[in-house]
């Protein structure tokens, strides 16, 4: 009954694929809250939610899994409790860590796909490199102000994050509006469901650029770098 309204699109087989899949949402900020919520509601079998941070009042304009009473608590603990209430059939596993070169392979070994909820390019590249090495699809997104971007890194079938973005400078505390992470985080969940159920055409080799000020969605083609130090050999 829970999945009745989505079965016409993905079928029993698709629902079984979701049930049998394991996903990591890395970063439980604005994007991560939205993506994890829709993945759990859709019936993903197992989800690792990863974030080192504690709930802060300035998170509450967009990170709807947390409330005033949660301030100071680890994000992953609060999120796990809310997400289990939403769908007790899903195995929600919280990890309060900062993903880095030393722990990323252990995390990726457990999952079929990784969803980007990060706000750091350094951590994104760590994930990208590990995903490419293990052949794990990686749904990337980023937001800033009214803007967002989205692409799917599918090792061997399109460019990786390093092909598209190269070396990025970190910017401290980007401004973010709740509805923008709502849109882009939902699209991350959508791409994840499409990849797992093999329904539709995932955003591989294409980069979506969204601008909320004029509701502009535009997709640009992105190509592999034949000399990419990470993905050119696969």
């Amino acid at each position: 009954m829970r999945y009745k309204r989505q079965l016409p699109m993905i079928g029993d087989r698709g629902q079984m694929c979701l049930r049998n899949s394991s996903v990591a949402v890395v970063g439980m900020g604005g994007l991560g809250c939205v993506a994890a919520t829709y993945l759990i509601a859709a019936g993903i079998g197992r989800i690792f939610i990863v974030d080192r941070d504690f709930v802060n009042e300035s998170n509450l304009n967009r990170q709807f899994l947390y409330g005033m009473l949660d301030i100071g608590k680890p994000k992953v603990d609060v999120a796990a409790e809310r997400l289990r209430e939403l769908n007790p059939d899903v195995n929600v596993i919280p990890f309060q860590i900062d993903v880095d070169e030393n722990n990323v392979m252990n995390l990726i070994a457990e999952v079929d796909l990784v969803v980007d909820g990060l706000d750091s390019w350094k951590s994104r590249f760590v994930l990208n490199d590990a995903c490419v090495k293990t052949g794990t699809p990686y749904v990337h997104a980023g937001v800033s102000g009214f803007r967002g971007q989205l692409t799917v890194v599918f090792p061997g079938r399109g460019p990786c994050l390093r092909c598209i973005f190269k070396e990025m400078e970190e910017k401290s505390l980007q401004p973010v509006l709740g509805p923008v992470v709502g849109i882009i985080g939902s699209l991350e969940a959508l791409e994840t469901i499409k990849l797992i159920t093999e329904v539709g055409e995932p955003l591989i080799g294409r980069l979506l650029l969204f601008d909320g000020r004029d509701l502009d969605f535009e997709i640009v083609d992105v190509e592999r770098d034949p000399k990419c130090p990470i993905c050119s050999s696969i």
Binding site: D119, G142, S144, I164, K171
Partner: peptide
């Protein structure tokens, strides 16, 4: 579709090329 930094030293535009410029969004 190729990042300019890949091909910086060898850029030779051809008729009909498409160039896209955007600021990346890094927040989450």
């Amino acid at each position: 579709g190729r990042n300019l930094k890949d091909i910086k030293g060898e850029i030779r535009f051809k008729d009909g090329d498409a160039v896209a410029v955007f600021p990346p969004a890094g927040g989450g």
